[in-house]
């Protein structure tokens, strides 16, 4: 089967670990050093959907747009989100304000692309007590049907990193092949 190319975007506040998640997923590396992203940095990786469904011999080339994080002075440019099949919305579980902004990011994407898939990542869970993470999750809810779920991730340990990208890729493929 031919490889399908799909655009997915990473959005969230600055410093939540979007670039680190991509780096862990694509390059299998992690660095504690913070390097802010300007504009958009595009990475790509081929995902074999057999990881999620054994009988499925389909590969998807994900073009992952690492979009400059939102700051109090600059919002995320909607033009970056156009044409994206899905997004990964990221929050830093150690910073409450980034969690509070998740809903805004989801709404921004849905306004541009009502069919796109959305995965939510609570990143840096290695820095938070599991019971606190549970409480954060209890306080969160998304009414948008495109939201696949909330994933506890850690770019540092790799927790759920492959899983969230692969799940997003699979759901995008399934959306196109219903």
């Amino acid at each position: 089967m031919a490889i399908i190319s799909k655009k997915v975007c990473m959005i969230g506040d600055f410093g939540v670990g979007k670039t680190s998640l991509i780096r862990r997923f694509v390059e299998r590396q992690f660095s504690d050093q913070y390097l802010s992203t300007v504009g958009v940095k595009i990475s790509r990786k081929i995902v074999n959907l057999q990881h999620l469904e054994v009988d499925l011999s389909q590969e998807i080339k994900l073009l992952i747009w690492d979009i400059e994080g939102q700051t109090k002075f600059k919002a995320i440019a909607s033009s970056y989100l156009q044409g994206a099949s899905g997004i990964l919305v990221v929050a830093d579980s150690t910073r409450q304000e980034t969690i509070e902004h998740l809903q805004d990011h989801v709404k921004q994407f849905v306004a541009i692309n009502s069919n796109g898939m959305i995965a939510v990542a609570l990143n840096k869970v290695d820095l938070v007590d599991p019971e606190d993470i549970e409480q954060i999750r209890k306080n969160m809810s998304f009414s948008e049907h495109q939201v696949l779920g909330i994933y506890n991730t850690s770019a540092k340990t790799g927790q759920n990193v492959d899983h969230i990208f692969e799940t997003l890729a699979f759901k995008i493929w399934r959306q196109d092949n219903r």
Partner: peptide, 10 residues
């Protein structure tokens, strides 16, 4: 449509 500052990780 305007996309500012695109770069590639590769």
């Amino acid at each position: 449509s305007y996309l500012e500052g695109i770069t590639r990780s590769s």
